[in-house]
Amino acid sequence: MPLPYARLGLRCNPFGTVPDDDVGQLAVTRLGAAGRWLEGGRRALQFLDPPGRGKTTHLLALRRTMPESAFVRARDLRVAAVSRRALLLDDAHLVAGWRRALCWTRAGAVALTTPRDLTRELRLFGFEVRTERPSAAWTPERLHAVVTRRVDAARLHHARGPAPDAATLDALYCRYGTDARATLDALYFDFQHREACAHGEV
């Protein structure tokens, strides 16, 4: 029996959960000079959207452009460890208000993800705030680019892996809209089905 997914020319299911270290590499974003903008003073960049729209992916992609920054998830946040270097805070809304306030006073620049607008709070602490909505840039073309990148990353050496056709991706976009997580989930289970078929289990 060959290794899982080897029959499809892949190492693994391209749409599984990607470790944090690889997310930034696989992300398709248009962050542009957001990293440089952040470093320009007391500035805050918030990724504002409902869950599953790619906020954390954008934050991890931003981390790649800012190697000096400190990425931290809400549950791992230690206020005492926050320094003047840029703080990338995931799920900022989950941090208690008074702890957030301490973070904002200590941090030099902040990038954060939240489904709740924190603009007023950040302005109160003297930040110049910029809000990005990852879902606004989630188009069928973006979906196609994400899928291509994921499949390429999972490709086994130089094998030709299967890729969903444009019609399938358009149908997924119509069905799930800007919910990137649900779209990638659907693709994950589609590939699981393909793998099972390749093994003759279906």
Binding site: N13, G16, T17
Partner: peptide, 16 residues
């Protein structure tokens, strides 16, 4: 040193 390590990786729908 040159180190060789046997590793088991669980991945897929969940965290790796």
């Amino acid at each position: 040193a040159l180190i060789v390590e046997c590793r088991t990786r669980a991945s897929g729908w969940g965290n790796t």
